[in-house]
């Protein structure tokens, strides 16, 4: 139930914020070093030490992994499988554990490369 709602919420977030930022990012890359510098400045902007855009990006990568994993769960359930209470619940919890672990791993790696 909760994971099903998360699937919708993360899907909407990815549709608007995710694809919006993807389009903006590509536009910035295509616009040359100065345009890309502006994009990087926004990403690295800190509001009283709080990296706002970075938090949005972390949220979006978590949304991506959560939506991907719960999407796989929905595809499995579309075949009529995994409706048993125990399996269903375990699967739902695993999507959340998986998305958090993948997001953490990705950002530890990304921030490590940036430095």
């Amino acid at each position: 139930m909760a994971v099903s709602i998360l699937h919708r919420v993360t899907g909407v977030a990815l549709s608007f914020a995710g694809l919006g930022i993807l389009a903006w990012w590509l536009f910035a890359i295509s616009g040359g070093p100065d345009a890309y510098g502006n994009f990087e400045a926004v990403v690295n902007y800190r509001f009283y030490q709080v990296p706002l855009a970075l938090i949005v990006l972390v949220g979006l990568t978590w949304s991506f992994f959560q939506h991907l994993l719960s999407g796989i769960r929905h595809l499995v359930m579309d075949t009529g499988a995994a409706f048993e209470l125990g399996i269903n619940k375990t699967f739902a919890i695993l999507t959340i554990v998986g998305s958090v672990v993948l997001t953490a791993a990705l950002w530890v790696f990304l921030l490590g490369v940036a430095k």
Binding site: Y36, L68, G71, L75, L106, L110, V113, A114
Partner: peptide, 23 residues
């Protein structure tokens, strides 16, 4: 959604494999 499983994984993997993320 099945296509995006592949394309999304490709996208994330590509960003991870690039040596730097400059322009």
């Amino acid at each position: 959604s099945i296509a995006l499983l592949f394309l999304g994984t490709w996208f994330i993997a590509s960003l991870l494999l690039l040596p730097k993320l400059d322009q």
